[in-house]
Design a protein around this nucleic acid. Structure first.
Lengths: 192, 192
DNA sequence: ACCTGAACACCGTTCAAGT
DNA sequence: ACCTGAACACCGTTCAAGT
């Protein structure tokens, strides 16, 4: 935030190191979690990244921090997808397409969806998640206006319910599709 | 299964011990899990039950076995509730009441609902769960016949979805109620 | 036949020492 | 300022010894 960048700051080289370590840790975590699930050994992640376990903890104090860093990329993509879908003509169809994408993206590895549900409950903003929620909410509000989605429902609940489906079906896309269709059409329609 | 019970079998006294240990373990697990959640230390459960850790493992080879033994009681109560509700006049209302009871009963402690979802996915019969599913299915079939529930939906999916809601809302009854209402009425009604 | 608990294995987490 | 990895703590699980 300093407006003048005097040449007394030699923090550049160090920063590159830190950033590279962070990137390596994220890549290693992605690879490890895809193979062993979100409960994989963090020691293994650090080893694959080529850093000490202490460095992992310095960057990501908890496993959930590491998982949310991976989710940030997913949320950014989903935000972009929601903005694109806002241009499509059918509001209900567009919302459904986006919810299917949400489930698909958030079940890249076992345990990721559960982590996403936790992150969605978190009160603090977190930029990429906030962007996704805003874009998704616009998509949902349009469906409400067109009468495709219930006027009295909250978008946060829609996303929560969709996350719940992702979390229980995990890597069974057909089952996820069935449960999403069921929740979309209604288990006991006509209920308020 | 022997039709003659010859007096040569002195297994009675031992059996009483075993059964008492099992009962103590279940009571201790219930108490411990209610306080610390389903991921509580099993060492603590054994200590509270007054038995060695080896005895716990002899009775329940995995944590999930222990949790499913606790769930068996819940399932038995839910089976009875479903049979009672089959006598009520409004099929849709009766189904909703039962699904609410399911969520409530299966969220007695943190982590119980996740265990229930796992147990529901299990292929093997398991008497009390089978009884609950049969009674619940009758309730659901009646709602389908009266046009309150979709004809093309499977009861196992309805229960799975309800379990998912229980698992993510856990000990927040208001949230569970909202998500259940949303899934009942439909997030995007008119979808197939 | 069942129970016990010491022993083993494994993992998360911290922090003193190093660069 | 950041990194390292040994050290500590804790827990799940087994199994030889006991009753």
């Amino acid at each position: 935030m300093t407006s003048d960048d005097t040449p007394k700051a030699p923090a550049r080289a160090v920063r590159a190191d830190v950033r590279r370590n962070r990137a390596r840790l994220l890549a290693a975590a992605r690879e490890t979690f895809q193979r062993d699930g979100a409960d994989a050994s963090l020691e293994g992640v650090a080893r694959l990244a080529g850093v000490g376990i202490g460095t992992l903890y310095r960057h990501f104090p908890t496993r959930q921090h590491l998982l949310e860093a991976l989710l940030a990329d997913v949320y950014a993509e989903l935000a972009a997808a929601a903005r694109d879908l806002l241009l499509s003509p059918a509001p209900g169809e567009a919302l459904m397409t986006w919810l299917r994408a949400f489930i698909s993206q958030v079940t890249v590895f076992r345990g990721m969806a559960a982590s996403a549900v936790v992150s969605l409950r978190d009160e603090r903003p977190e930029p990429s998640r906030r962007a996704m929620c805003e874009a998704g909410e616009a998509l949902f509000a349009r469906a409400q206006r067109s009468g495709d989605a219930p006027a009295d429902a909250a978008f946060t609940d829609v996303l929560w319910l969709t996350g719940a489906i992702a979390a229980v079906t995990e890597r069974e896309p057909e089952a996820a599709g069935r449960l999403l269709s069921l929740a979309a059409a209604g288990m006991v329609p006509g209920r308020r």
